[in-house]
């Protein structure tokens, strides 16, 4: 199976637009494809399909529960905790766990020599399974509002990908930090979606720096072509980076997207184009394997 992540440094360049349209085009062409919405802070992909939820499971972290009766207030757990999640005032015999700061690493339990720490699960979010046209093809990571990091939930969603499918499309969170890295490092190829504006170019450069560091093959889709300026084209050309496709800016496409519809559904040309992008990537990855 091939995993393709759809990512961008800058938010709102059209990741979900590209991910949902590619996924639709693959399904239309009878490719055994899965869509994984890894943008756990703002998951939107399911809204573009007629879905039926078929299952779900909760993602949790284990946080410590301190039994104040056995606790000697020695402070060892506080010392072991690298995230300042244990608040302790020994003279006052006060010890508290700040659950929001806890990463669930278990270091405090290891530190405690008095058996004063047990653990309880705390919910971080949910992984949902949906079927589209009666096929179980959509996985969604959805972080609970108020949780600090989307990473555990999106990692749990990625783990659910059935390797028997032909292609998995991973809709990545924006940015170039940890949530992005977790998504792209699980993928074989990354499509970076950008727009031809100074902000778009700056964030694209940062994404590409990151992908080069982890040695991940990638290509670029320029969305809203026609807006902005030509700097991005010059830069891509000078750096010998492939442009996989351009999607022109049009009020019509923006309108279709705004209603939760897919351009590849209303315009066959787009379906063919998005389908071909995947074929091209497949070829590219094959060539790369042969080169090695």
């Amino acid at each position: 199976m091939i995993k393709i992540a759809i990512a961008s440094g800058k938010g709102g360049t059209g990741k979900t637009f590209v991910a949902t349209n590619i996924f639709h085009s693959l399904m239309q062409n009878n490719v055994d494809a899965i869509l994984v919405d890894c943008d756990a802070e703002a998951p939107n992909a399911a809204a573009f399909f007629k879905t039926r939820q078929t299952g779900s499971f909760e993602v949790t972290k284990l946080v410590p529960v301190i039994n104040a009766d056995s606790c000697t207030f020695c402070g060892k757990c506080h010392e072991y905790c690298n995230f300042n999640a244990i608040f302790i005032l020994p003279p006052m015999k006060i010890i508290n766990v700040i659950e929001d700061l806890c990463h669930g690493c278990g270091a405090c339990s290891v530190a405690c020599r008095y058996d004063a720490i047990t653990e309880k699960p705390v919910s971080l979010g949910i992984v949902k399974f949906y079927s589209v046209n009666d096929k179980p093809v959509l996985i969604e990571a959805r972080m609970n509002v108020g949780v600090m990091s989307p990473v555990p939930v999106l990692k749990a969603a990625i783990k659910q990908i059935n390797d028997k499918a032909e292609i998995a499309i991973l809709d990545s969170p924006p940015g170039t930090a940890c949530p992005f890295i977790q998504t792209v490092s699980a993928s074989d190829y990354v499509i970076l979606v950008t727009e031809p504006t100074p902000f778009g170019l700056s964030d694209l450069k940062q994404s590409i720096d990151t992908l080069k560091k982890i040695d991940k093959p990638f290509g670029v889709i320029i969305n809203r072509a026609g807006l902005g300026n030509k700097d991005i084209y010059k830069w891509l050309k000078n750096n010998n980076i492939a442009i996989l496709a351009e999607v022109p800016f049009s009020q019509e496409i923006a309108h279709i997207y705004s209603e939760g519809r897919l351009i590849a559904d209303s315009d066959k040309n787009y379906e063919i184009q998005f389908y071909n992008i995947c074929n091209w990537i497949k070829q590219e990855l094959n060539d790369e394997v042969l080169m090695k």
């Binding site: 939107n44 209603e259 939760g260």
Partner: peptide, 15 residues
Amino acid sequence: PTISGLHDLKRAAEI
């Protein structure tokens, strides 16, 4: 004014 915009607005407002 997109369905994604409204969906994410709700989550941002909740926070």
